[in-house]
Design a protein around this nucleic acid. Structure first.
Lengths: 143, 143
DNA sequence: CTGTGTGCAAACTCTTTGCATAAGT
DNA sequence: ACTTATGCAAAGAGTTTGCACACAG
């Protein structure tokens, strides 16, 4: 055998390959963290933190790059909710969110449940790419 | 008369006073620009640019401070739509938005028109503070 | 006068980029 | 080998902050 380190064809590796992404150590690790435990909402910093927790090392720049590559490949969806920081959602299907303002925490609302009616016609030459519904939550007591 | 420069009670000045804000030159100017021509969506930079266009001078830091003071006073609503920059809406009533992704442009959708159905119960101890519906638009042709 | 607001520059956060090095195929 | 990805550090955008000075009441 001449192969030094041929990557084994784990599901994650296959997933990356079919998305057209070379399964590098960093990408495989990030993909495992992202897709290994159900639907998740992560920021770049959170994900980078998880990498360190697991005792691995991936630069923050690479985390950003990878999140965008995954988004372009359709593995993630980027959420513009908080304003100050970007969240990425591992659930790419049609759904919406509760957003707990105080904690910056997101909770999925499944797509089948919500219906938006009464939308006016989009302006000439435009079409709807996506509708985001964000239900902002505050504690019962607080104003 | 002893008064050097008592501010005349223009509508703008009154509006600031009843919001509990001292009508300084900067605040009056910014309020005129913001509320003088119907409903608007502005970023801090845009508003600062308008100040310069009018031949006046207000520091960018003061523009930011003032936008937040106005928001706290209920004269503006802050919109978290773009992710990278903050927009402020002079229309504080219940309504939603088209967002033209390519141009970063916002268009109001009046509140009466849109109806959101099928919301699940918020988690225990939380109440809905506000529901944002953002209809993202792309040109007809583009993917 | 007294306290609040402003301006400036510096600091900060989140994110992106350029380029030399490393790794996948 | 050849190409693409990574890491680092530096740059970049947008926004906030600290403090001396200015102004409204």
């Amino acid at each position: 055998m001449e192969n030094e380190a041929e990557l084994t064809a784990t599901p994650t590796v296959e997933r990356l390959r079919s998305a057209g992404l070379r399964p590098t150590r960093q990408r495989v690790l990030l993909a495992e963290l992202l897709f290994g435990k159900g639907d998740r909402h992560v920021s770049a910093e959170m994900l980078h933190g998880e990498v360190l927790d697991v005792g691995e090392q991936v630069s923050l720049a690479t985390v950003y790059n990878t999140l965008h590559q995954f988004t372009d490949a359709g593995l993630l969806r980027e959420l513009a909710i908080d304003g100050s920081k970007a969240y990425f959602d591992t659930n790419v299907s049609n759904h919406n969110h509760f957003f707990i303002e105080d904690r910056g925490e997101l909770i999925d609302i499944h797509g089948e449940n919500i219906r938006v009616d009464g939308l006016p016609q989009p302006p000439e030459g435009m079409r709807i790419s996506h509708i985001d519904v964000v239900v902002r939550l505050v504690p019962d007591n607080k104003k």
